[in-house]
């Protein structure tokens, strides 16, 4: 502990190769969802539409970054015996801040995300990063790490939501893009491109998120073979 403390003092705050790696690693080699398998629950529930996925992604980036910074700043003061609870309290506080803010300024999203905002607390990414990184590193590096992991998570979330909303409803961010509307809709909503396309209801349901992520994992691992499960 003493040694690392000395080294830390020598290192100035800079943005070099190592720092860039902290930021980009979680986007690919160490992606929270497709590689570390953390934070799946919310990835499934909120990805029916781009809008909800976007709100969720921003919320997780916020919570992940700040929880990392706060924990890292307090890391020498946090007693080992109650480490877990202290970390959870920090996360829960940040999540409550997110909830209260959404309720005040984005009420529609708040209504739609409902209990899934609360579930950010148990989003294992946040907890996992606190335990694995923030407890042993300076706030600056921890911020980068939190940001990287939050964004790595958010990207997958948006990718899944993109596929599900486009093929499920033929919409993006709620705007009709492809496919004709069902018969009773004809007079009210214009069909745009590919009028023959029928929205695939399966894509809207929960299990489809599982399939989409499975395919994403397939593509990701085929493209980056060092991630393949050898066991």
């Amino acid at each position: 502990m003493a040694e690392t403390a000395v080294i830390e003092k020598k290192e100035a705050i800079k943005f070099g190769k190592k720092e860039r790696k902290l930021l980009t690693d979680p986007l690919d080699d160490n992606n929270p969802i497709t590689v570390q398998v953390l934070g799946i629950c919310s990835a499934l529930a909120v990805t029916t539409g781009m809008k909800n996925a976007m709100v969720m992604a921003v919320a997780v980036v916020f919570v992940c970054t700040f929880a990392n910074v706060i924990t890292s700043a307090l890391r020498k003061a946090i007693p080992k015996q109650v480490r877990m609870i202290v970390q959870l309290v920090i996360i829960a506080t940040l999540v409550t801040v997110v909830e209260l803010t959404l309720k005040a300024y984005a009420f529609e999203s708040y209504k739609q995300l409902s209990v899934f905002i609360g579930l950010i607390i148990t989003n294992c990414i946040v907890m996992g990063r606190l335990e694995a990184f923030a407890m042993a590193n300076r706030p600056y590096e921890s911020a980068l790490d939190g940001l990287g992991n939050g964004v790595g998570y958010g990207i997958i979330l948006l990718m899944v939501a993109f596929i599900r909303e486009l093929f499920g409803k033929g919409e993006l961010f709620g705007y009709k893009l492809i496919g004709a509307a069902p018969e009773y809709m004809v007079n009210t909503l214009d069909s745009k491109w590919f009028g023959w396309y029928q929205g695939n209801n399966l894509m809207v349901l929960f299990p489809s998120a599982m399939f989409v992520i499975a395919v994403l994992i397939w593509v990701h691992r085929a493209w980056n073979p060092k991630l393949v499960d050898v066991s």
């Binding site: 299990p207 599982m210 499975a214 994992i217 397939w218 085929a222 499960d229 066991s231």
Partner: peptide, 23 residues
């Protein structure tokens, strides 16, 4: 199973199918 799907990928696929069954 195709190599990139081994382990995790299959687990996701299976869970999805079980979810459909439970629906």
């Amino acid at each position: 199973v195709p190599a990139p799907m081994r382990g995790l990928g299959m687990a996701f696929l299976l869970t999805g199918m079980m979810g459909m069954a439970f629906m």
